[in-house]
Nucleic acid binder design. Sequence first.
DNA 1: ATTCTATTGAAAATGGTTTTCATTATTAAT
DNA 2: ATTAATAATGAAAACCATTTTCAATAGAAT
Lengths: 154, 154
Amino acid sequence: MEKKSKMEWHGRFRGRGLRFTIPRRLILETLSSTIDHLSAEEIYIRVHRKYPNVGLTTVYRTLDLLERMGIISRFQFGDGRSRFELVQSSTKAGHHHHLVCTSCKQVIDYDDFVEEEVELLKKVEKALAKKHGFEINGHVIQFYGVCNNCQKQP
Amino acid sequence: MEKKSKMEWHGRFRGRGLRFTIPRRLILETLSSTIDHLSAEEIYIRVHRKYPNVGLTTVYRTLDLLERMGIISRFQFGDGRSRFELVQSSTKAGHHHHLVCTSCKQVIDYDDFVEEEVELLKKVEKALAKKHGFEINGHVIQFYGVCNNCQKQP
DNA sequence: ATTCTATTGAAAATGGTTTTCATTATTAAT
DNA sequence: ATTAATAATGAAAACCATTTTCAATAGAAT
């Protein structure tokens, strides 16, 4: 599994004439080994612990690249920074949507109704793609609210 | 309609011990008179044209306030700045969702399937609110893709 | 008109992200 | 393996949307 995805990744890079470097591998491994929604800086810190001569700049550049390659998704939850996770294709297990507390910024992944949501979204996506000539390759569903804990403390 | 909403707004401010000042009125009028998703700076420019001694700081502060009051919604389409529109309650006409071109950043409002979407979302919202103890007060549905025009030019 | 205090504008500070540029490292060819 | 070509990197500086600070101003109740 480790090996397999490593080779998969390597192939996706080489296929585009890109190099599968150490920083790129470490960033992908970091994202693979957590369910959290990490920010660029959080990824930098974790990568940096294992391999101290990786710079924050490279993390930003790599995240942009991975997003353009369709390997990771970028989310904005309202705390002023982008957060990233490995793409969970909406047709596969693991795909989820987000519930965000606008007060403490915590994010809960939910998948309770994702099948239903995705089913509808696929229909909408198809219609919108046709109507507006778009090539659609992603979606976001997010609920915003105030979590249990934040409701108590004013 | 102009007068009516002006009085309505005035009431909502006074009800919270807030003042309905000239900058606040102008910002609300600006948002009322467009269907665009304006950024803080775009709002500032428009307000500034009519009333040059309104500062950008005040625009930011007012937008934060209006969002907290539930009068406007903030969206992040990925171009690095927040964009705002008057709240269109999901139960009322005018409510729409967004289709975003990740290349040129254009945003298309669509309402083709919004009734269906909102119906499902209400069900999900209720379940999530109960399950996680959230008080949910908003949602985002966005599709991301590449528009007709951007597909042509590499 | 006066008082109280919410609100404001200007300037400075903040903080996430991007750019610049000289250096390094990966790959394909030798 | 070496080498040549160039993709990728790190550090520092630049960038830019947003926030903070603070003294001055202006709503609203009296």
